[in-house]
Computed example of a mutant assay.
Amino acid sequence: MYYKTTKTYSGRSKNRERRKRMVTIKDISKRCNVSPATVSKALNGYEDISKETIELVKRTAQEMHYMPNAAARQLKTNISHNIGVLFVDDTMCGLTHEYFSAILNSTKEEAERLGYDITFISQNIGGEKISFAEHCRYRKCDGVVIASVDFYNPGVVELMRSDIPTVTIDFAADNLNCVMSDNVDGTYSLVNYLAGKGHRKIAFIHGEHTSVTEKRMLGFYRGCEQNGIEVPEEYVIKAVYHDPKSSAKATEYLMQLDDPPTAIMYPDDFSYIGGMNQLERMGLSIPDDVSVTGYDGITLSEVLRPKLTTYYQDAKAIGRESARRLVDVIENPKTSIPEKIMVTGRLIEGKSVKQI
C-alpha cells in the first residue's frame, strides 16, 4: 500500500511539472509536423499559408494550452497589451457607481476580447506621489481611458497632452478620441416628454459644472424654448451628481417656493432617492403632487415605486467603443484619426409623471 501511494504521488508530481512547462511554438510545430515559422504565421494572422494549416495550428495550440510569451511579444511589437483606466469619482462611490461601473466593465470585456489587460491608474504607488502620466509609463500602459474625473485638473491635462494614446469619456478635447453620451438629446427628450404631459412649470436640478452639465443645460433650455416654456431662475438649481443629500436640499427649496414646479428633473437616478425621501417627509406624493424624472436608466430606476421615468444612457456601448477606439490608436498610430463618437440613449417611460 505504501509503495502504491508513493508511486501515484510521483506520477502526479510529474504531470504537474509537465503542466508548469510553457508550451512553445516548437512544440506545436512538432505536433503539427510543420516548421516553427509556419506556426508563427498561423498564430499571427498571416494569409500566405493554407486555411487548413491555419486551422490545424490554432486547434493544436488550443489543445496544448499554448500561451504567447508576453515579454517576447512586447519586444517584437513594442506593445505591452496593457490599457490604463483613470477613474476618479468625487463622491467617493468608486465602482459602486452603477453607471460608471457598467462603462468600465464593458471597457474591460472589450479590451480583453482584443487581447489587452486593464490597470487602474492613480497618483499613489506605495505611498509615493507621482503623476498620472508617470503611473501610466511605470505600468507600461499602451494607452489610457479617462472617465469621471475633473478634466481641468493639471495632472489630467498633463496626461491628455502627453504622448500616451488617450480616449476620454464624456469630454471633448482637441486631437483626442472621445466617446460621449448624447446629453443634449437626453434632457431635451425629458423636457419634451414632460411638456407632452401638460407640464409648464419644470424645475431642473443639475450636477456640478462639467462638460456633461453644460450639454444637459443646453438640452433643457432648448426643450423649454421649443415648447414655449418660460423658466424662472429659481427653477434651475445646482446639486451634486450621485449625491442624494444635495438633491434632497434642492427639492426642499423648490417645493417651498411661492410657485413650486409641477415637475422636477433630477441629475441622476441615484440622486433622485434624496428627492423622493424629501418629498415623502413633506407629505407630497409622486406623481399626484409633483412629477419627477431621473437620468442614467440604471437598474435602480426599474425597482423604485412608482417606477421612475428616466433617460437610459447606453453604458455598455460607451465602454465598448472606448476600448475599440483606444486599441485602434495603439495598433494603427499612423492611420488612426481622432474621432468624437456620440452614443445615443433612449427615454424610458415609468409611472412618475402625471398627465395634467
Rank of each mutant, 00 (worst) to 15 (best):
G294I: 00
C224R: 10
P260L: 06
F270M: 15
K307P: 11
V292E: 04
Q313M: 06
Y266S: 15
L254V: 12
V292Y: 02
D258L: 12
L326T: 10
V290H: 08
Y266L: 15
G294L: 00
S271H: 08
M282C: 07
V240Q: 11
A315P: 02
G275C: 08
I318V: 05
R324D: 11
S271E: 10
G223F: 01
V290Y: 09
L218G: 04
G228R: 05
H242P: 11
R305G: 04
N227P: 07
M282E: 10
P287K: 10
R305H: 09
T310C: 06
D289F: 09
M217Q: 09
A315F: 05
G297H: 00
V292M: 04
I286D: 06
G297E: 00
G283C: 09
L300V: 02
Y272P: 15
Y272K: 15
P267K: 05
G223S: 03
A263N: 11
A263V: 08
G275K: 12
I237G: 01
P244Y: 02
R281C: 09
L254D: 11
A239G: 04
Y312T: 07
L304A: 01
A248C: 01
V292I: 05
Y241M: 06
S291E: 02
R216V: 00
D258C: 08
S301G: 04
R305M: 13
A248S: 07
I273G: 05
D296L: 00
L284Y: 08
R324Y: 11
A315I: 03
K245A: 08
G219A: 01
E321F: 10
A248L: 07
L279P: 12
I298G: 00
G294R: 06
I229E: 01
G275L: 09
L218S: 05
A239Y: 02
R222E: 09
D296N: 01
I298M: 01
D258S: 11
A317Y: 06
E280Q: 11
R281H: 08
L257P: 06
Y295N: 01
D269P: 08
L279F: 04
T310L: 09
P232H: 00
M276V: 11
D296G: 00
I298V: 06
V290I: 14
S247C: 11
D259N: 13
M217F: 03
A315R: 14
Y312I: 02
N277F: 02
I264Q: 13
R325D: 15
S285F: 07
E225Q: 12
S271L: 12
L254Y: 06
Y235A: 15
D259E: 15
D289H: 11
E302V: 10
L304K: 11
T299I: 09
A239R: 08
T309L: 03
R320K: 15
S291W: 01
M265V: 12
Q313L: 07
D268Q: 09
T309W: 01
L284T: 07
T310P: 00
K316E: 11
I237E: 12
I318Y: 00
L326D: 14
L326H: 12
